[in-house]
Every structure is written in structure tokens, then in C-alpha cells.
Amino acid sequence: MPGLHGGPGSIPCHCGMDWSSGCLLANRIGSPYKELLTTTPQGKRAQMESQPILLFDGDCGFCGRTIEMARRVIQPRVQFAPWQYADLAALGVTEDRADREVLWISPIGGKVYGGPRALSAMLMSGRKRWRWLGIVLRMPPVNWMAGGVYRVVAMNRHRLPGGTITCSLPARMRHEPDRHI
């Protein structure tokens, strides 16, 4: 799956719909992402190189709502992208890692930070009042505790507000038909 969403005339995306019919993810996550998902490959590369990217699980309702809240409240200077539409190989990320944790990809050197470190970077790129929290999240012993809390939340995101059973499944199983029927 090269690049972010392939755009008009592309093969069906992971949600099972062709873009011309209306990708479920693009319709669900709203207009700020539609532009990102339909940009030309050259434009995507320029976007990826000019600002940090925060990859999140686009299939997870809890993740999507959390990202929308962060966009409104924290207002970080970052490009949010569902990992299902990102060119993971170009970003130096595996599908397994992207499915396991939120990822911050720095435009300088392409450094990748996951989990609480990614959230810390997002907070530090946001409005002034949130920067201190991002700094505190990187300091011991807070960063040790943040790692444990992040793992518990990630493992139970299907139980949290906005979460669905899809949030608890590994990506490879989310769109497979039920073989037990």
C-alpha cells in the first residue's frame, strides 16, 4: 500500500470501500484528514519532510477521538495520519509497531518515538500551556510510570470511551470475514 490513501481510482482501501464510493475512514475522521488522504504522492512526500507526523490507529474509535481532542485542545504543530494510510516503509516503521503504539516521526533525521515519548513530543509541539507536561513526561520517574500507564491504556482501549471491539484486534484480523460461521 504505497503512500497515504491512494485517492480517486485507487484499489479498495483497508476499510473495504473504493475511494470513489467514499472511504469509511476518511468520512469518519473528517475534513482535516481528507486533504492528507487525497494529496498526490509528491505532495505527501513534501508534507512528510516538512513537519513531524503522528501516526495513530485509524481503525480505533478511542484513538480517533483522542486525536480529535488533541487537535482542538493542545493544537500541536504536527501532521496527524492514520497509520493504515501511511507509507510505513518510507517512514522506517513496521506495521506491527504502528499497530502497537502511537508514533511520532521527526522530520529531522526521521527519528521515530513511540508510546509515551510520542505523546510527550506532541505535547511539547502544542500550545505553551501544554509544553511543560511534555517535558515532565520525559523525566524520570514520570517517564517510567508513563510507560506502564500507556501499556495498560493501549491494552484496554476497546473498553474506554469511544473504543470498540475492533480496537482490541490486531490489524491483520480486523477486516477478515468470520471463519467460524
Score class of each variant (00 low, 15 high):
residue 110 G to E: 05
residue 117 R to Y: 14
residue 86 A to M: 01
residue 56 F to I: 02
residue 66 T to A: 13
residue 82 P to L: 00
residue 62 F to Q: 03
residue 77 R to D: 15
residue 96 D to P: 07
residue 116 P to T: 12
residue 96 D to L: 12
residue 67 I to H: 01
residue 51 Q to G: 15
residue 97 R to I: 04
residue 94 T to E: 10
residue 95 E to A: 15
residue 67 I to Q: 02
residue 55 L to H: 04
residue 92 G to T: 07
residue 81 A to W: 03
residue 61 G to W: 03
residue 114 G to S: 14
residue 87 D to E: 05
residue 53 I to D: 01
residue 102 V to S: 09
residue 112 V to W: 01
residue 86 A to G: 01
residue 71 R to M: 14
residue 67 I to E: 03
residue 73 V to E: 10
residue 102 V to R: 06
residue 101 E to Q: 15
residue 98 A to I: 03
residue 58 G to K: 00
residue 54 L to W: 08
residue 63 C to T: 07
residue 106 S to F: 06
residue 76 P to D: 14
residue 101 E to K: 11
residue 108 I to W: 08
residue 88 L to A: 01
residue 74 I to W: 14
residue 93 V to A: 08
residue 113 Y to M: 13
residue 91 L to E: 02
residue 62 F to C: 05
residue 104 W to I: 08
residue 56 F to Q: 00
residue 100 R to D: 12
residue 67 I to K: 02
residue 101 E to R: 12
residue 116 P to R: 12
residue 69 M to D: 00
residue 75 Q to W: 08
residue 61 G to E: 05
residue 106 S to C: 13
residue 85 Y to E: 00
residue 74 I to V: 15
residue 95 E to M: 09
residue 77 R to Y: 00
residue 58 G to M: 00
residue 76 P to L: 14
residue 113 Y to S: 15
residue 116 P to N: 14
residue 89 A to I: 06
residue 74 I to K: 12
residue 81 A to D: 01
